[in-house]
Amino acid sequence: MPDARLLEIENVSKHFGGILALTDVSLSIEKGEIYALIGPNGAGKTTLFNVITGIYKPDSGSFRMEGIDLSGKKPSMMAKSGIARTFQNIRLFSNMTALENVMTGRHCRSKSGIIGAIFRNGNNRTEEIETEEKAMHLLDYVGIRKHADMLAKNLSYGDQRRLEIARALATEPKLLALDEPAAGMNHSETDSLKGLLERIRSDGITILLIEHDMKLVMNLCDRLAVLDFGKKIAEGKPGDVSSNPLVIEAYLGGS
């Protein structure tokens, strides 16, 4: 059987001043699964996200994407290597249209430079048309094609979340990292988000998910890990983890 591991994180630690945000966290995500990262606020979930998307450099430890060590590389390299992300508090390009946002996501999969832009030669034109077509397709895919020409900041909250996912998908990721995609959504929006995520997975993209909506996590993910005070305290299938005494302690007792 070929190696099923997509992302392997090994003993990653990160501290800010005296605060240990992550201590020796290791986990591995397999191709094609939906893997969730849960834990109380301040447990280090977003910090881990920021490490694997290159915003923070780990103090120690490393992580590999399909066997290639990426630790400490620039964020733009991470995107090129197949890790795309969304942000906890949405970070769209507000004054660009929805379409332009997604087209920008294709940046690392296209290569026209200044000369091409000015002269609009054949290659450049083909690439622009392809970029726009793919972007349109992705808007359709997440269900906001009709808003293609609206400025990102004028979209409804739920549509902004969707647009962020479309933009991330435009980078043709192998791993899609979503930071609380259901935050602030109502029931029906969450349900349709669940449908979208399942569809993305069935199209062969692995998903790493931070989420507080336990119902969504338990119904959706194949495996999950629980972080508490920067340490991994449990990992496994949803059913096993939810009966783990350490996890119950972290969520109900303690702090």
């Binding site: 290159g54 920008t104 690392c108 622009e128 435009a170």
Partner: peptide, 20 residues
Amino acid sequence: RIGRAWIAIREDEIAAEAMG
């Protein structure tokens, strides 16, 4: 492509970098 990248940086540099 370059122009969109410029504007993306103006709008949100961190997000732009995350897009490669």
